[in-house]
Amino acid sequence: MSADARALSVEGLYKSFDQLEVLRGIDLEVREHEVVCLIGASGSGKSTFLRCINLLEPIDAGRILIEGEEITAQGVDVNRIRQHIGIVFQAFNLFPHMTVMRNVTLGPTEALGMRRRDAAGRATELLERFGLAEKRDDYPDRLSGGQQQRVAIVRALAMKPDVMLLDEVTSALDPELVAEVLNVIRELAAGGMTMVIATHEMGFARDIAHRVCFLDEGVILEEGAPEQIFSSPREERTQRFLQSIIDAGRM
């Protein structure tokens, strides 16, 4: 695959909840191995956008393509599509009635049809890589927030996704637990994982992103390299948003 092959294309995406227009024409192209960070105020549509990419929300208009295949076409097998897209949620959403191991192997065994032993092997490898090997037989309630979120990332990785979508994965964490999760994401980026990351961590976005998109009222108002967006934003709304982050002492 060439370096500029498109992993994900979004064309003219619209999405409303009843009267509320959340996404009003989003266009985005993500190349393979690219890390794109979505920034913007709460309610700007970041989470909805990610959920649409994973077909968790039906879209009103537009097209989404993964590796060149239109996933929003009629009659597409959504279960097969989702196997190629990993998503990690703000609130972890681990399965509380299953051990860490089973959380990680459920997808591979039941969605991919892997043998349990093979899935366990893959899970063990991933858990070891992210320092969670000792937790394999624990239930999620016993883990810290940071550990739970790392398990959630491993659970998504166990499906060997083409693209990872991260939805404010550190927003529900105590400040001292944020770093361990961000380090995992850095490692993924270093390993060439294609990622779309909605985040409030501006410093992290500046470090990790190849490209930053500022979402405002359901559209990508401005996008560019992190240096440009964070140091010389062109749009007035982007400037105001970043100023409010600086004022809050968050950057």
């Binding site: 959920r51 994973n54 968790l56 279960n79 097969r80 599509i81 989702r82 196997q83 897209i85 990993g86 998503i87 949620f89 609130a91 959403n93 681990l94 399965f95 009635h97 459920l106 997808g107 039941e110 969605a111 991919l112 659970r155 998504a156 499906m159």
Partner: peptide, 23 residues
Amino acid sequence: SQVASARALGLSRRKTLRFVVLP
């Protein structure tokens, strides 16, 4: 959100019910 997690892994409705919701 439990259903969303399971569906996001690519589990069908039926398997989501069986492995995640009903237990």
